[in-house]
Design a protein around this nucleic acid. Structure first.
Lengths: 237, 237
DNA sequence: TACGTGAGGATTGTTGACAATCCTAGTAAA
DNA sequence: TTTACTAGGATTGTCAACAATCCTCACGTA
């Protein structure tokens, strides 16, 4: 009946623009280090620079943009330690989400995670090389959302964007398609069994696998990689 | 010699204002639910509404402010589940920080944490009722900072502000002064001993203690409290 | 060649004004 | 008494113009 009326409680212009900017960073349309020219972007969004600047300030506080006074706003560029940092933070957040799932509405979470897993299997069969990693991350997103924690969701959103930035910068060759599906499946199974300890073990191993695949030198278990105080290095290459 | 020149690389106006707004929320000068009138605040900061709005958008993306279109920006008000949510998220972040400390520069962390602990002992002797809880939170802040993770630090900063909001709303009677000092001491000792497992156990118990003290019904171990879908309830009482 | 200097243009930072929406009384009718 | 309606004022959303800073590049000098 009600054709979901739109202007009711419409979100702020800054929120809409911020979402699109995140999308652009995520997809690589705005690559690391890129400057966000205000005039050009404002024209593209068909707003004045005011609302655009408000939106950009949101991304600054999320750590996706870096601000240089009188110079402009830039997409952060990932330095060597950032891959480890992102994955370690994700491991913490997703662990907390898993704990809340096991101590909360586990059944509902299993349903939603199974859906995400199915989507992953479908994506594995598609020709689009990007479909599987994307479905993979959506599974992790679903995991955190199923926790029901507003704060975990907020933090995970940013971390997942940064994960996509890492993947793009490192040009993941993407081995082990089967592995990841299997690991996700095992996690869901352990949830069904109500075995919290095993869920956490599997999740930890899964995150460890992920960072090992991505940055062969790093490991969540052996600690952060030695800080390389080189100047102006990024992870591309 | 160089009297730390200031205008070099001065941070943006939005960043400065945002920090002061966080401070005001933290101290309760801007209590939960309060509206942030743009005209009044802009006059107080002696800037126009533009930079002020940019600063406020930062706090929106941090979850400290909530935006209602054409109505204004308000400090979030804490609902019953939020106390649990904040402490569960903090437990996750601080656990990750502890792990990184144990697998990184443990010695340096112990030094800094010992300083924070000493400050706590001093604060315990002061007449200011607020000194001890403040020193307590600074210890936890130091813990996360010692992890060296930019992302953990960013997330913890917001969570610690929300913790202060919870404390203020619940008017903590603040029992167990000795307990908390002892628990922090034990954590540092375990760090010195290089016993990661014990550090994590102690930290978990410490966070569990904290939430039990604050919201007797809640527990990090038994899961989130049942959601009370009442309308417009906050935790003050 | 290397380096300092100084227009000129382009970009960011800030402001005040205007448009759109919301809140509040006050009035009138059922 | 309650409800509906309507100015009027106050607040937020948006914009275009101005000020301040930065970048570029040509020019001149050692």
């Amino acid at each position: 009946m009600l054709p979901d009326i739109e202007p009711v409680n419409r979100e702020s212009t800054a929120a809409i623009i911020a979402r699109q900017l995140r999308e652009a960073i995520m997809t690589g349309a705005l690559p690391p280090g890129a400057q966000l020219g205000e005039a050009e972007l404002a024209a593209r969004f068909q707003v004045s620079r005011g609302p655009l600047r408000e939106a950009m300030q949101r991304l600054v506080s999320e750590g996706l943009l870096r601000s240089e006074r009188h110079r402009g706003l830039f997409v952060i560029d990932l330095e060597p330690g950032d891959v480890y940092d992102v994955y370690a933070a994700r491991a913490a957040i997703e662990r907390a989400a898993a704990i809340r799932i096991m101590r909360g509405d586990t059944e509902r979470a299993v349903t939603e995670l199974t859906e995400a897993l199915d989507a992953m299997v479908v994506a594995a069969g598609e020709s689009d090389q990007n479909a599987l990693p994307e479905a993979d991350l959506r599974f992790h997103e679903a995991l955190v959302e199923a926790s029901g924690s507003r704060r975990l969701v907020r933090m995970a959103r940013t971390l997942l964007i940064e994960t996509r930035m890492c993947l793009a910068a490192l040009q993941r060759t993407d081995p082990g398609t089967e592995d990841r599906v299997a690991e996700h499946t095992a996690i869901i199974e352990a949830m069904k069994a109500g075995d919290e300890r095993r869920v956490l073990e599997l999740l930890d191993a899964h995150m460890e696998d992920a960072i090992t695949r991505l940055a062969p030198g790093s490991s969540l278990h052996s600690g952060p990689p030695p800080s390389v105080p080189a100047d102006g290095v990024d992870i591309a290459g």
